[in-house]
Amino acid sequence: MRERLATAAYVLRANPVSLAALALLALLFGAALFGPALAPYDPLATNTSLALRPPSAAHWFGTDQLGRDVFSRVVVATRLDLAIAFAAVALSLAIGAAIGAATGYFGGFADAAVGRVVDVLMAFPLFVLAMAMVAALGNSVSSVVIATAVINLPFYIRLARAETQMRRHLGYVEAARVGGSGHLRILRVFLLPNIAPPLIVQASLNLGWAVLNAAGLSFIGLGVRAPTPEWGIMVAEGAQFIISGRWWLSVFPGLALMIAVFAFNLLGDALRDIVDPRSRT
């Protein structure tokens, strides 16, 4: 562990970009935790007499077609967008690791069957599959979480399966088996902790993608309900105004989205460097 921390310190020092990522993440989590307190206006309050004002001292990011403050909405939206991404990734990580590790360890028919299902899932156009799932499950935040988790699942299953297969005949596993440990115990105590690092790296790389996916779903009108502030919806609502030059409606939430994804991707890279220094790219 100490070694890892040392690597972490080294990676951060050697790579100022990772430091920047940490700063961005701090900003995001700050907005997510304290967003409603930080927002200068009620993100839902409409004021049609102030509609479509460009950015000004009073409204830093301007106002939208109903006179709502874009800055407040962008800040408040952080919590929901991050929550969706974390929930989806955690869900696919947990389920994917369990299924992948089990099939990788036991092999046999279940392994083959799961492999087939994964093949089928991967053959779908993933974003459209997510659309269809949200449509089928009903427009709600939980549907977006589930859909995002499901389309990510194959990657975790494959990774966990490969990592487990690689280790299941290693000395310490064999030793545990000879020592009388049951399969479940072996999986839980010996295998899962060892396959966790690559999975966590995968998850961190996946977070940004999950944010994009959720926002994309909202952008096409599936998912989060109006008037809840959410970046994807805000970009979508502003899209019709861009052609007439009202850029602030969609550019600011779009920027927030980019910053979030960017920060998560940098975080993922940094984590990978720490966990597996050889794969630095």
Partner: peptide, 20 residues
């Protein structure tokens, strides 16, 4: 619907908007 939601809020009716 946002205007409906806001106005009804003034008489204590809490409205959740659903797009279908």
């Amino acid at each position: 619907s946002l205007l409906v939601q806001e106005a009804l809020g003034k008489i204590g009716v809490k409205v959740t908007i659903v797009k279908a």
